[in-house]
């Protein structure tokens, strides 16, 4: 784990120093001193990330006795499938909010998540899925005066 993390940090640092910073950070042409340039800080951070990555990789390569281990779960395949499902749920939620409105999207996201993790209380899940977004809507829209997205279909008062 430590070795993989270290290699990942080194690769990220190389990418940051050689590509990301020169291409994605703009600097005025009249900056005389490099320490005052907008480029300076990202370069320093990139370099330090590389050094830390090197340290992690070395300690992983030497076989660090303190290397942490994650607790195993009974069904890693199903767990991974659920994670993919949840990532898709997040993407759909993000996309649907401006179209369906935050309240309806939240209701669907609540239900989808509750059933994704196989809730043993489906009736309570349905009640909460309807009630929680409505209560939050009432608070944020009418107390906090936040313009909660209403969507294009059903609009709430």
């Amino acid at each position: 784990m430590q070795l993989r993390l270290g290699i990942g940090a080194i690769l990220a640092a190389i990418f940051l120093v050689t590509y990301a910073t020169p291409n994605w950070v703009s600097t005025p042409s009249n900056v005389r001193n490099i320490v005052l340039s907008p480029l300076f800080w990202p370069y320093i951070l990139g370099g330090l990330t590389g050094l830390i990555g090197l340290g992690l990789a070395l300690s992983g390569w030497r076989g660090d006795p303190g290397e942490p281990v994650n607790d195993p779960i009974p069904d890693p395949g199903a767990g991974a499938a659920r994670l993919v499902g949840f990532a898709a749920l997040m993407a759909v939620t993000f996309w649907a909010m401006p179209h369906l409105g935050m309240v309806w999207t939240s209701m669907l996201a609540f239900l989808a998540l509750a059933f994704l993790v196989k809730t043993r209380h489906p009736a309570a899940a349905v009640i909460c899925a309807v009630a929680v977004p409505l209560i939050l809507y009432a608070f944020f829209a009418h107390v906090a005066s936040v313009a909660i997205p209403q969507g294009e279909l059903v609009r709430l008062p």
């Binding site: 939240s106 996201a109 239900l111 998540l113 509750a114 993790v117 209380h121 309570a124």
Partner: peptide
């Protein structure tokens, strides 16, 4: 409180 009801609630709270 069942955790599998609580966490969807947390998700919706976070979104708002």
């Amino acid at each position: 409180i069942p955790k599998r009801i609580l966490m969807p609630m947390v998700l919706v709270l976070c979104i708002y």
